[in-house]
Design a binder for these strands. Structure first.
Lengths: 358, 358
DNA sequence: CTGAAAGCGCTAACAG
DNA sequence: CTGTTAGCGCTTTCAG
């Protein structure tokens, strides 16, 4: 393990180039307003000395850090078990890289870590925070508000402006959970299915609630309508999907279609259906949500599901934060076109992907 | 999005407590050498003002950052497609949290990003770096060496001390790829299989090479020995596994066992075997590597595989770095017991997990 | 045990 | 256009 060596300072570069520190600083930061030959001399000195600015010193005066925190609560390990999070992280990373900003990852695993995160955020190391707020009782959003750091949420936070209960100025990015669910269920209905069940996600997360609402929406349109016995609570995991599916089969053996809250849940459901001798999609059609490639494409049969662009969500979160920081200057359009903006939330569209399971 | 507010300074706290800045500083940093009543007054002032030290100012003088960089090269998206990386990250995060250190994630996606990463590392924002060096031609290790930052590698780097080609002082953590592979292949041989094939990983990664070596080791013991026609190159992905398995079946229809370089490869192989009407394990026994829960437990049949403790690898990398930084003080023992240390590499043990596929 | 003073390395007015 | 002059907020000798 190499020891860190002491790096040359502005002073040293200035001396070598025979100019003042101020001039070197100017050249290093864009270099406008410095005559070409001088600038050239400075650049050579920088090069020869291998000078790299000390960020701590710079931040101290500029109050900028070129870094944003990504806060992830992972009370259960689910966050890490599916590629969802990794994809968002990648989107965030890409966008930040474009703006020359660093990604500081703050993992929390319980109350103990919350204090640490709050302290860090308040300590002014970062220009802003991207927060994945998962659960209803999560104290993190409050702590972060108190830290007084510009923040964008991933996923609609509980009690957001749209539902009327939320605090002002909450910015978030989410996909159209409700619309996507509606589309999936309508597709199942369009197949002629009349007993369409729903295996929900963990209902302390808004995504699960919104998908359930979408399911209800679609069923409101049809004669038979909504039957509460066809709704079983899961938890976004394969195991939860199995459990829920078993319960559903026991309760309503006549079910002919299942909309699972995500692909992992669908995976569990498929397994139980196979065990029970039900054919998919002949006896029971199955649809999922997320379109996680490694899951949805490789189930047997391949899964019909609702696709959301996870990486784009991450990218958009970062962009929104950065735009807010720069006071709305350098606004650009998202690569996905123009997403719908409702209140302070940005909702990305979803697409139904038809495969063999429904 | 809340605007950041200006935080109180040491000065303010000092004024409020009626002491000097120096005294406040002492109290904030452990507080030894300050008389109790005074210290108490300071603590109250800190509390009332909600004072949090400005890290930039502090770093400027202490030259410590309480942050380490995690550098991940992801030229292909594989890094993110499997949970491997997420698990290591989690291990790293846990260990860093214990030491009150932050995790700065540096994602790179090509040459363009390399310069950015090198600059960042050289800029002295972090106390050290954890680097996942994946590919043979990756220029990253070199750049990082030049940055002069203490570094620990994840996975044996190319040309490490053990092979004699590596630079001095390279520290890394890896699992016992070779030994694990050997165990898996011996297990297949123990089942009475005589035509044991190997679907390799991407051979520009040391893990793939080491597993191939383990395969050869095991075969060196038996009469028939090593048959090069039974080795097909894959790339650690399911698609690569399918491709390799198809080629293998074409070339050696008499194969009766397959050792896949990882679980994802095994997944692809299983699919092709099923298509071809081969029964697993009756006709062909299959073993994988990694024991990724969401994959290995849920294949059909469940996969016999070599387990490595990925999270522990991450944790250990962080610990090694931190220990090195503190000059070897506060040394603790790893939770996994005492891993083997060869040269500057720490090799974690692997375990064969028997399931139905072999 | 406490305070005064001197910077850490950099940027940002302000003069020239 | 370039240099001079102040700090940013903190830690750390060094006196008292």
């Amino acid at each position: 393990m190499t020891e860190a060596v002491s790096r040359p300072t502005l002073e040293a570069v200035a001396a070598r180039a025979g100019v003042s520190r101020a001039t070197v600083s100017r050249v290093v930061n864009g270099g406008d307003g410095v005559r070409a030959p001088l600038a050239e001399r400075v650049r050579r000195a920088v090069e020869e000395l291998g000078y790299v600015p000390n960020q701590a010193a710079r931040s101290l005066v500029t109050r900028r850090h070129d870094a944003v925190a990504v806060v992830v609560a992972e009370p259960e390990s689910r966050v890490f078990a599916d590629p969802f999070f990794a994809l968002q992280l990648r989107g965030i990373g890409k966008e930040l890289a474009v703006h020359d900003s660093q990604l500081v990852l703050l993992l929390t695993e319980g109350r103990a870590d919350h204090a640490r995160v709050a302290r860090y955020l308040a300590g002014g190391h970062v220009d802003g925070a991207l927060v994945f707020s998962l659960h209803l009782d999560d104290p993190l959003p409050g702590l972060i508000r108190d830290a007084g750091v510009p923040t964008v949420f991933g996923g609609r936070p509980h009690g957001d402006p749209d539902t009327g209960a939320g605090g002002p100025g909450v910015v978030y990015v989410d996909c159209d959970n409700r619309g996507g669910a509606r589309a999936a269920v309508r597709h199942l209905l369009g197949l002629g299915r009349r007993r369409v069940a729903h295996l929900t996600g963990a209902l302390d997360q808004t995504s699960a609630v919104d998908r359930l609402d979408g399911y209800r929406d679609a069923l409101a349109d049809v004669p038979g309508g909504y039957d509460p016995r066809l709704v079983v609570e899961g938890d976004f995991t394969p195991a939860g999907g199995e459990r829920a599916m078993r319960e559903l089969l026991g309760r309503c053996p006549d079910v002919d279609a299942v909309f699972a809250a995500n692909d992992l849940t669908a995976l569990g459901a498929l397994r139980v259906l196979r065990e029970s001798g039900k054919r998919v999609p002949e006896d029971v059609a199955v649809a999922g949500f997320d379109d996680m490639a490694p899951v949805a494409e490789q189930t047997d049969p391949p899964l019909t599901t609702v696709r959301q662009d996870i990486e784009e969500m991450g990218r958009l979160m970062a962009r929104l934060l950065l735009e807010g920081l720069s006071g709305g200057r350098d606004r650009e359009r998202t690569t996905a076109g123009a997403p719908a903006v409702r209140g302070k939330g940005v909702i990305l569209p979803t697409t139904l992907i038809r495969r063999a399971s429904a």
